[in-house]
Design a protein around this nucleic acid. Structure first.
Length: 866
RNA sequence: GCCAGUGUGGUGAAAUUGGUAGACACGUCGGAUUCAAAAUCCGAUGCUAGCGAUAGCGUGGCGGUUCGAGUCCGCCCACUGGUACCA
């Protein structure tokens, strides 16, 4: 064996072996327990970034670990290939989105292989391939036939200069990112899938996902937002254009007597009707249109409103209440109207204060001493009704029921269950996506493209002008015939969340040409046993995929109810930023690789300079790796410099997977140093001669301790990989084991070498999932004929774990005053006696009365004295 | 705004069920080796005071529960993710 560790040589050997033996290509095997491990597939943006490296290292570690446990492991990879960035890049580089995308895929695939990820490339797919999106189109037409798809008007961001629809991301401070024009809201017809039909099930089956992070389930529950409330009808005092009234929904009918006005959306039919002969209102409505459609922007916008002059009739008191048009009420959600109870709702309170509207308290605290001062702020807690006539004195539930019942009797309201979740709008006015498989008919209306005419192909050889989608600009593309009749192709494409909603299932039947899925294969592999991806997908992607899975189930394609059995959400990858402010106020950002740091004597950075010029730059803090701050660290550079194993080891070691990960070159060197030390240890061990067969009956204390460490480490790492999914502590445990080997191992005889051999082999096996290349070569070097990728996970020798002594902490009033070594399982009584006799303990109990002694066997003794 | 997280030494972090705060690693300092340096090896390293034994303080802030709180509860601050057309 070579004395020095050369990562590039080692990695070449291992990667060639994996490739030549096709060892990650798997097929269904009913005799073996299956394990489907999946990473969220990447958008082919050009280069792999550290977030990808982290994601795929995690799934690779889990896959290799599960494989060593003897399971049939599927670990596929593919490309989320449709999307907005390809269009932007195509315009910028004067190329076509397809060409750009395919060349990115080629490059990134090579990068993935250089990192040694064990993917089954036979199942590779790219969502922009007609063989993939054909089945998505087919599935959509099936949903259409089942009535789960419909078309309606919906609001988009409209750039009036570029005459194009903008994504929320493309709206910056209310203006179009390219044109700078103030963005307008525009209503256009769009396709929707009825996710709300599945709201109840999407909510309730979250309870069947014990291995999902609680925070993700909570976010999804809140997003679905099931609530019980009352739908209330308000009549208009004077009908307008035949409109006699409108509905509002509230979860707080108990506050109904506190309604002092109602707010309606700018697009509400009543507002539009009134605006016809009200110039001021008409102007306000026009103004409301100049607003981004994103919820975050809207909530940040100033609350504005205007009194319409029209009143509605309060359904119980019959008193007139003012109708306001407000910019924060949206036509797309609910009925486009809300009742306002300023005394008991913060937003209504703020609005009422601003416009001097009445604030009427109708709820008082259940406990009289609770803070409630309506002149200062809204009281939003539930309480006891006041100023509510016949309902006075009722609590929330009683009032809810009584008021609902009364409204019901008057024919003015009913109890309903409401969901915050809205139907899934899947239409996009973009080019680089799956064409929506619908024909628009000349007489109006539409019909699904029949199966024989699928796929509706997206032309790939196009020129992007930066404004209009090439398939919208091309009148010929639109032309089609159906049964000899001229029809037109829909020119909108699908939301790219469509493709990412079912790719995990297609991997099981990747090359199937005759159907979307092969149920036999799909049902063998599904559900995914472990899904890993960024927390940013906690709601949208994961909810749409869950929904799509249920749609596929109801189509008879899959059997299980949920697609992802266990979910791990990884944190982002961060790096230090460096910048210089220019005289004109602009900022230049410098990549960490171009900066030299100067540190004070404690190691705290005090000064940063550009390595090339020596110019001083400012330290801008650690943030998410991004193009805008130029702090991306290229994985390829790191792999070239230290090797894939080091990069993988560092990514796993530097932080637990769910936390943010800070890239740090010094830390990477530490990881590299550890691998070199491992290599050197194996080299020294082999040079010392052949070990004898391990005989555990005649070991010295030091050797027993080393064996205990070996088996404690196996137990710890197994728990960390398999149960806790905390890879950083697993790596730390192996580091500890190797430290002990180097400190205590004895190479003088065959018997002692056997103890060292056991420890070293354990270390290699435990490390194999994280650093598979070096483990592959070292395992071979130790004389094994099978490859480490197929080796069996080490088992624990319970006898080696037995401890003779434990350290007990002795506290006085909760403060540590002594530590003692005692035999394992010393009795409570004995521990108490020993503790009280301790000299240091007596110093602190002297002159005090011992009130209580708490003894936790094998842990601590706490003496309470005063 | 709303929903969900996060906050521990100079730094990344550990502490799995309420029981020794800081494992492991980086950095820094000191030493060995070297003509010298790199690499490697050994040792020290939470902060403050003290030669030292040791003592006090210490897990974003304020308060609470408990014999005991990084961990549980309440309020607050800062940062991050999502907010339905970025993926």
């Amino acid at each position: 064996m070579e004395e020095q560790y050369h990562p590039s040589t080692v990695e070449k050997i291992a990667q060639e072996y994996w490739k030549d033996s096709h060892c990650f290509e798997v097929t269904e095997d009913p005799d073996k327990e299956k394990f489907y491990c999946l990473a969220m597939f990447p958008y082919p943006s050009g280069k792999l970034h550290m977030g990808h490296v982290r994601n795929y290292t995690i799934t690779d570690v889990i896959s290799r670990y599960q494989r060593m446990l003897g399971k049939n492991v599927l670990h596929p990879m593919g490309w989320d290939a449709f999307g907005l960035p390809a269009e932007n890049a195509a315009i910028q580089n004067n190329t076509a989105p397809a060409k750009w995308t395919y060349s990115n895929i080629d490059y990134m695939k090579q990068q993935l292989n250089s990192l040694g990820f064990g993917f089954d490339w036979k199942r590779e797919l790219a969502t922009c391939q007609p063989s993939y999106y054909k089945w998505e189109q087919w599935f959509f037409t099936r949903l259409y036939e089942k009535g789960l798809v419909y078309k309606k008007m919906a609001t988009v961001n409209w750039d009036p200069i570029d005459q194009t629809v903008l994504a929320n991301e493309q709206v910056v401070d209310g203006k179009g990112w390219r044109s700078g024009a103030v963005v307008e809201r525009k209503e256009i017809p769009q396709w929707f899938i009825k996710i709300t039909d599945y709201a109840e099930e999407l909510l309730s089956s979250l309870d069947e996902l014990p291995n999902w992070p609680e925070q993700v389930k909570t976010m999804q529950r809140n997003w679905i937002g099931k609530s019980k409330g009352v739908e209330i009808n308000f009549d208009l005092s004077n009908p307008i254009e035949g409109i006699k009234g409108f509905d509002v929904y509230t979860t707080r009918p108990d506050t109904l007597m506190g309604v002092t006005y109602v707010s309606i959306a700018a697009e509400h039919p009543i507002a539009l009707a009134l605006a016809k002969d009200n110039a001021e209102l008409s102007e306000f409505i026009k103004d409301c249109k100049k607003q981004s459609v994103s919820e975050a922007d809207m909530s940040a916008a100033e609350k504005r409103g205007i009194d319409t002059g029209l009143t509605a009739v309060h359904p119980l008191s019959n008193e007139p209440v003012a109708i306001w048009v407000a910019n924060y009420v949206l036509m797309d959600y609910g009925s486009g109207a809300v009742m306002a109870v300023p005394a008991h709702d913060e937003r209504d309170y703020e609005f009422a204060q601003k416009f001097n509207l009445d604030i009427k308290q109708v709820i008082k605290p259940t406990k009289p001493d609770d803070d409630c001062d309506i002149s200062q702020e809204a009281y939003t807690e539930k309480g006891i009704l006041v100023n509510s006539g016949e309902f006075n004195g009722l609590d929330f539930q009683q009032a809810f029921d009584a008021i609902a019942q009364k409204l019901n009797a008057l024919g003015k309201g009913k109890v309903t269950t409401n969901f915050r979740l809205r139907d899934w709008g899947v239409s996009r006015q973009r080019y680089w996506g799956t064409p929506i498989p619908m024909f628009n008919l000349p007489e109006g209306g539409e019909i699904a493209v029949p199966f024989e005419k699928l796929p509706v192909l997206l032309p790939e050889d196009v020129e992007m002008d930066g404004v209009q989608s090439p398939i919208k600009a091309d009148a010929d593309w639109r032309k089609a015939t159906l049964d000899g009749k001229a029809v037109e192709h829909e020119t909108d494409t699908f939301d790219t969340f469509m493709e990412s909603s079912w790719y995990y299932a297609r991997y099981t039947s990747a090359d199937l040409e005759s159907a979307m899925l092969d149920p036999n294969k799909a049902n063998y592999w599904l559900p995914v046993d472990q899904y890993v991806g960024g927390i940013e997908h906690a709601i949208l992607h994961l909810l749409y995929a869950r929904f799509f899975h249920k749609l596929m189930r109801d189509e008879g394609l899959v059997e299980c109810d949920e697609p992802f059995k266990s979910l791990l959400c990884q944190g982002m990858v961060l790096a230090e930023t460096y910048f210089r402010k220019n005289a004109d106020g602009s900022t230049d950002w410098f990549n960490p690789s171009d900066v030299t740091l100067e540190k004070d004597d404690k190691g705290k950075p005090i000064k940063a300079t550009l390595t090339a010029t020596g110019e001083i730059v400012e330290i801008g803090g650690t943030t998410k790796m991004s193009k805008s701050k130029n702090n991306g660290v290229d994985p390829q550079t790191a792999v070239g410099q230290y090797g894939a194993d080091t990069v993988r080891l560092f990514t796993m070691f530097a932080a637990p997977p769910t936390q943010t990960l800070e890239w740090n070159d010094a830390g990477v060197e530490g990881a590299s140093r550890f691998l070199r030390r491992l290599w050197k240890t194996v080299h020294g061990h082999l040079a010392a001669g052949e070990p004898a067969t391990l005989n555990t009956s005649n070991l010295t204390q030091v050797q027993q301790d080393l064996r205990r460490k070996t088996h404690e480490t196996i137990a710890k790492v197994s728990d960390d990989y398999g149960v806790r999914q905390q890879f950083n502590t697993a790596v730390a445990a192996v580091m500890e084991l190797l430290n002990d080997v180097n400190k205590y191992a004895d190479r003088s005889t065959g018997e002692t070498l056997a103890v060292e051999r056991e420890a070293i082999e354990a270390a290699i096996l435990l490390l194999a999932p994280v650093a598979p290349h070096i483990s592959h070569v070292l395992w071979e070097t130790l004389g094994h004929t099978d490859s480490v990728v197929n080796a069996q996970w080490p088992s624990i020798d319970q006898a080696a774990l037995v401890k003779s002594n434990v350290t007990i902490v002795i506290q006085v009033n909760g403060k540590v005053r002594a530590k003692i070594d005692v035999a394992n399982n010393t009795s409570k009584e004995e521990l108490e006696t020993i503790a009280k006799q301790d000299e240091n303990v007596q110093k602190f109990t002297d002159g005090k009365t011992i009130r209580k002694v708490i003894v936790i066997p094998n842990k601590l003794v706490n003496i309470v004295a005063n």
